[in-house]
């Protein structure tokens, strides 16, 4: 049995279509990542699966239970951590976790071993108000609160947004450990670098999944030549690269430009030469151009551009 099954989910807010037919399956004991920018529809998926909103079309089952009909059962068996860490800022760390434990009819002591790994970070601060914790601490507390009742599926909506890189890394280590305990985890993130830490990912944009596969699978489907271009006048360089007819697309990635070339049959050296010549004609010199391996973000941008142009 799948932990989560979604079939052709549709959600509209007025005339705005937040989800336009989203389908996916999550296996038991799997970390499933939903990767996409803000406003792509990630939160709508989470809210439908956690029975907080009703889909306007399609159906979904969590642990075999229908999200519309059997919502009571689902609410008992899943853990949910909404995008903004939903804690009581004026209650202490300990009061927060104890409150969430009683909410599910259990106690901190009863399920202590479940949250031990995470909660042990927090215990020195257990008398501190949740509002006075750092972002990473808040996130750990929220995760502890979502885990305290031994859920079978964990829904984490952008858990690492606004958290420092060290805490983000720690957080993913914790997720991996939870997965090993047999928990299915559905997690969303706008950070492409976190995608490779998931077992399988779905790339979402404008309410539609661009692709669903393992991170390696998604990357392996990217077969076009990909080059990184570096130079002194980056903004004008970006504009000029996009005007070269052989270029499929070009985006700024940090301090380099990633260029996707159309299928041409040219050798790698010939591709680099082609870019050099075309850009020299537009007055760009001192360029560094090399081939690179695509990452998830490259795949995302490529698929998104394909979608847009079709």
């Amino acid at each position: 049995m799948y932990s989560v099954e979604a079939d052709n989910l549709i959600k509209r807010y007025g005339s705005n279509e937040a989800l336009r037919g989203v389908s996916f399956r999550v296996d038991a004991g799997e970390i499933f990542g939903i990767i996409g920018p803000d406003g792509a529809g990630k939160t709508s998926i989470f809210r439908i699966l956690t029975t907080l909103i009703l889909p306007d079309g399609g159906s979904a089952r969590v642990l075999g239970q229908d999200v519309v009909r059997d919502y009571h059962e689902i609410r008992r068996r899943v853990g949910y951590m909404p995008g903004r860490f939903s804690l009581y800022q004026d209650l202490s760390v300990e009061e927060n976790i104890r409150f969430f434990a009683t909410l599910f009819g259990t106690t901190l002591e009863e399920n202590y071993d479940l949250v031990k790994d995470i909660y042990s970070y927090l215990e020195p601060f257990r008398k501190r108000k949740a509002g006075a914790l750092s972002g990473g601490m808040k996130q750990k507390l929220a995760l502890s609160c979502a885990l305290i009742h031994k859920p079978e599926v964990l829904f984490l909506d952008e858990p690492t947004t606004g958290v420092d890189p060290v805490s983000r890394k720690e957080f993913w280590t914790m997720l991996t450990r939870l997965k090993q305990q047999g928990l299915s985890i559905v997690v969303s993130t706008p950070y492409m670098d976190e995608a490779t830490l998931c077992d399988r990912i779905a790339l979402i944009e404008h309410g539609r999944f661009l692709d669903t596969d393992t991170p390696a699978g998604i990357i392996s489907k990217f077969t076009l030549p990909l080059l990184a271009v570096d130079g002194p006048h980056m903004p004008s360089l970006l504009r000029d690269i996009r005007q070269i007819p052989q270029v499929f697309s070009c985006f700024a990635f940090g301090d380099t430009h990633h260029v996707v070339l159309r299928e041409s049959g040219l050798s790698e050296e010939a591709q680099i030469d082609l870019l050099h010549t075309a850009l020299y004609a537009k007055g760009h010199t001192d360029l560094t151009i090399r081939h690179i391996k695509p990452g998830v973000e490259d795949c995302f941008m490529y698929l998104d551009t394909l979608e847009e142009r079709s």
Binding site: T50, R75, R84, S86, H149
Partner: peptide, 13 residues
């Protein structure tokens, strides 16, 4: 507003 209602709703209470 704070989003805690979301968590309360996704609970058996």
């Amino acid at each position: 507003e704070r989003g805690t209602m979301e968590v309360l709703l996704v609970s058996p209470v």
